Amino acid sequence: MIIISKQSKPRKIIDLLLTFFGWLFLIVFLYNFSSHFERNLDFTFLELNLANANSILLITIGVVITSAAALSWWSSYNKRKFGHLKRRTFPPQTNPKEIAQYFQLKEDELKRIQNEKYIEQSNSEASSL
């Protein structure tokens, strides 16, 4: 699905240039990555020693605390900014006369349709629709 929006020409040109350079960067990166790939990889960096475990634990705790602080700040900001707004309003109540007028029915037909469990449409009614 292609979303087309109205953009000015300079903005469209900047968008095309950024997209082009982004794809170019990705292609060059993948080419360099695949051309410098060695078959004999050294996995010693995956060894977990005590110094690595401590630093990984500290970084993880720091990320969790930072994320929790950001989420709680965002929550309090939203409550302060938008908490008092009452945007949800229900549409006004419709009466049977309006419903019958909308569907081009008589009020007694509408009551019959609303109260019957099963409704069959006769041939004359089907041809008029």
Rank of each mutant, 00 (worst) to 15 (best):
I4G: 00
S5E: 15
K6I: 12
Q7S: 11
K9T: 08
K9V: 08
K9Q: 15
P10E: 15
P10I: 07
R11N: 13
R11D: 15
L16D: 12
L16T: 06
F21T: 05
F21E: 13
G22Y: 10
W23M: 05
L24C: 05
F25N: 05
I27R: 00
F33P: 00
H36R: 06
F37E: 06
F37H: 07
E38V: 03
N40R: 09
L41Y: 04
D42R: 11
F43V: 09
F43Y: 14
F43G: 04
F45H: 10
F45S: 09
E47Q: 14
S55Y: 03
S55P: 00
L58S: 11
T60E: 14
T60Y: 05
I61Q: 12
G62W: 01
G62R: 02
V63R: 12
V64M: 15
V64Q: 13
I65T: 14
T66I: 13
S67K: 11
S67T: 09
A68T: 06
A68Y: 12
A69L: 15
L71R: 02
L71V: 06
W74I: 03
W74E: 06
S76N: 08
S76A: 09
K79S: 08
F82L: 09
F82S: 01
G83A: 04
H84I: 11
H84P: 00
K86C: 01
R87G: 01
T89D: 07
F90S: 06
P91C: 02
P91T: 00
P92W: 02
Q93F: 09
T94M: 15
T94N: 04
P96M: 06
E98D: 02
Q101G: 03
Y102M: 12
F103T: 01
L105Q: 03
K106H: 05
E107R: 12
E107K: 10
E107T: 08
E109K: 13
K111M: 08
K111A: 11
E116V: 03
K117A: 09
K117S: 08
Y118G: 00
Q121C: 11
N123M: 09
N123D: 13
A126P: 00
A126Q: 03
A126T: 01
S127V: 08
S128K: 05
L129K: 04
